[in-house]
Simulated assay, not measured.
Amino acid sequence: MLANLAAQFPHVQIVSLEHDTHWFEDTKNQLPAPLPSNFHLHHTPLTHIQLQSPQRDADAGDAHTQQWYDYFPRTQPLCELLLVDGPPGSSSSFARLPAPYMIPMATGGCVVIDDYERDEEQAIVRRWLADLGLELMDIVEFNTTLAVLRKPRWAGLEVKWRRLKN
């Protein structure tokens, strides 16, 4: 679906990360030929990272040491739409927490997280709201439950202001 979207919108860059070799090969085999030049599928094993999140609470755990995709491009444009459907929960607690910390978001950009019906994903979203100033825009039922968040214009300033006031 995303490769077809890339073909329709050649100015949009789409990057898909897959850590599991089986799923990577399966996905690669399903892609259309020729593959649009603006669609990029990467096999990126998980690696240990350290989050620089100032927030520590019982709700979202002390989840500063995480596993995340071994994908660190030299230059990375600001992301306008981030679909978070991994890593799987079996890889670590709060496995999806690093997504908007590791992938810089554009002002007005959206984050969609899958499996929002789970307690852990709800805790992750609460952490993003507090840490990053994201706004919860909608909850959508679509096979599973999706939470849709947006980075407002003053997100970083609002978070810093809240910390100064406290």
Rank of each mutant, 00 (worst) to 15 (best):
Q122N: 03
S91Y: 07
S93N: 15
R74G: 14
R74E: 15
L83E: 00
T75D: 13
E80K: 13
G89Q: 13
R74Y: 07
Q76S: 06
P88H: 12
S92L: 09
R118S: 07
E80W: 12
D114L: 02
Q122W: 00
D114M: 03
M102K: 11
P73A: 05
D70S: 11
R96I: 03
E121H: 00
Y71C: 02
Y69I: 06
R118L: 07
T75C: 10
L83W: 01
F94D: 07
A106H: 03
E117L: 04
G109S: 07
A99Q: 10
P100E: 12
S92R: 09
Y101P: 08
T75V: 10
A123V: 13
A95V: 00
P77H: 02
V84Y: 01
L97N: 11
P77K: 04
P88D: 12
L97G: 06
D85T: 08
P88N: 15
S93D: 15
P98R: 01
I113L: 11
G108S: 06
L82P: 06
S90P: 01
E80L: 04
T107H: 11
G89R: 12
D119G: 14
D70V: 11
L81A: 11
S90W: 05
E121L: 01
A95H: 00
G86D: 09
S90I: 10
P87Y: 05
V112D: 04
Y116C: 03
S90Q: 12
T75Q: 15
L97H: 13
R96F: 05
G86N: 09
E117P: 00
I113N: 02
A99F: 04
R118I: 01
M105Q: 11
F94H: 14
E117C: 02
L83T: 01
F72H: 12
V112S: 05
P77Y: 00
D85M: 12
P104T: 15
P88G: 15
G109T: 07
Q122Y: 00
F94Y: 15
R74H: 13
P98F: 02
V112Y: 02
P98E: 03
E117W: 05
G109D: 10
V111F: 03
E117F: 03
M102W: 05
G109I: 09
G89H: 11
Q122V: 03
D119M: 10
D119N: 13
V111N: 09
M105K: 05
T107R: 11
F94K: 04
G86R: 08
R96H: 08
P73H: 09
Q76I: 01
A95C: 02
G109H: 06
R96A: 11
D70L: 08
D70Y: 04
R118Q: 05
G109R: 11
Q76F: 12
V112I: 15
G109C: 09
A99C: 04
S91R: 08
R96K: 14
I113D: 03
G86M: 14
P100L: 14
V111I: 15
T107N: 14
F94P: 06
L83C: 02
V84H: 01
G109L: 11
L82Y: 07
G109N: 12
M105A: 10
D114C: 04
F72V: 13
L97K: 13
Y71F: 15
P100Q: 13
P98Y: 01
G109W: 08
R118A: 03
S93R: 13
P77Q: 05
L82K: 09
A106S: 03
D85I: 12
M102H: 10
L81G: 07
R74N: 14
L83H: 04
G89N: 10
I113E: 03
I113C: 05
